[in-house]
Design a protein around this nucleic acid. Structure first.
Lengths: 244, 244
DNA sequence: CGGTAAAGGTCTAAGGTCATGCCATTGACA
DNA sequence: TGTCAATGGCATGACCTTAGACCTTTACCG
């Protein structure tokens, strides 16, 4: 029966885990990622527990366990009382110059991320450039861009880069697009951190960033997408080498 | 402090619910969607409970509750004993010709889906056309295409259309891409079902499908993407009208 | 100096979810 | 025709998560 064969093929491919892990682990992972990507930079306060819990769709008890885990890992510090809260104490480390530590076993997933990135980020640029952006949105982009340029060291540069890509996604106004870019950046962070960063690479990447933002601000979808494609392809080439 | 403001903006946008609902509901939704999309067409057997539970990452107890719900909704039938199992008894209904029933309140999410679709599906086409496809993969595409052409009625046509789009995603070989397309198709299914289907539309859409598949099989990424863009834009135009 | 507001800290009862093992039914195959 | 294996059906105990109320600490402000 043909129906059965078709079902086998697509079913294998369409059904996905309904949720990979417990709520607690999910919270830890999401918050840790946000911190490592620099969504919450060193010294920035996290939202209040009640706020976070609501936004992440989780009970406050569970969220608190997650924060406790982050505290245990020295990523955040918590103060009580009015004006208290949880602030980020994590400082990004300089990219390691030796090989690729602890990436084994995830190779397949990481390659998938590269492919998916090639789909999502150029598409996001296209959308972003097609919209008429508010002044605030333009500001978000230019700010993110200059922060990448002015990053004092490699570690800060890496975070600023993630933030720039997230900023681009955010001006699409599309939550699903934003979620995808977040996921991709999270997957790629470790990899990107493992590349030996050459000055040449940074300059090249800076030129590309500028071209991308310029095209988005100028409302040129095709150029924006092409620029982002080039950017993705260039880093992917480096990264694929790293993965053997 | 600048860091704090940046954190506010991106944090608002990056943090997402760790899981929207209970495992049980997630299973029901995912299975029901797969059935309505035609991943498992009328008469096709679902995988065994143990198999499904493992693939969806839930316990068999939970999965069984989900199947019980589907049975209650007359979407599947279950037989015991060797050679038994659960088979799809759901028959797709013809698209309703009256307005848009029960779409209210989800407008925002549906519009988001249209945007995201515009990002993902053309990107997937580009990737698919860039790869060298195996004979089996080519067969999957051509089969899906002819099934759309030969669909006996509107309802079958709708399902075959979904399957074609999923088939394209599946030949990217990228699980993340597949997941995104699945999500998009699931969101759009109700909408697409609510459009009055004109013969003109079907013929137009058939031509586009042919062009897309041809470009993918011919290894022409840019043409494949452009064709899919056109396809997305055309249906999106219809659908946006529907949503007011 | 005292009050108030805003944050984190704690507790409890109820229900959801899981892993696991065993039972019941039925068709296939020897 | 009898046995067996594949499948759905069921029960138990441990663990996780939730919702909500309440407590404690602390800064600000009159």
């Amino acid at each position: 029966m043909n129906a059965a064969r078709a079902a086998d093929h697509l079913g294998d491919v369409v059904l996905r885990p309904v949720r990979g892990h417990h709520a607690f682990e999910g919270c830890v992972e999401q918050l840790a990622t946000a911190i490592r990507l620099g969504v919450y930079p060193h010294g920035a306060p996290l939202p209040t527990e009640r706020d976070l819990a609501e936004r992440m769709g989780v009970s406050r008890a569970t969220l608190r366990e997650a924060i406790a885990a982050l505290r245990m890992a020295d990523m955040v510090e918590t103060k009580r009382g009015r004006g208290g809260g949880t602030v980020v104490s994590f400082r990004p480390e300089a990219p390691s110059t030796d090989g690729s530590p602890g990436l084994a076993g995830r190779t397949e997933h990481l390659l998938d991320s590269l492919t998916f990135r090639r789909v999502v980020e150029p598409g996001a640029c296209h959308i972003a450039a097609s919209r008429t952006l508010s002044a605030a949105e333009k500001m978000v982009l230019t700010t993110a861009l200059t922060e990448v340029d002015q990053a004092p060291d490699e570690a800060a540069h890496r975070q600023a880069d993630s933030r720039l890509h997230l900023a681009i996604a955010s001006v699409t106004g599309s939550p699903m697009t934003i979620a995808s870019v977040t996921e991709v950046q999270a997957c790629l962070h470790d990899l990107l951190q493992a590349i030996p960063v050459l000055q040449v690479n940074i300059e090249h990447s800076t030129r590309q960033h500028r071209a991308i933002i310029q095209a988005i601000l100028g409302g040129e979808p095709t150029r924006a997408r092409r620029a982002m494609e080039q950017h993705c392809d260039d880093t992917a080439a480096l990264l694929r080498g790293l993965l053997g």
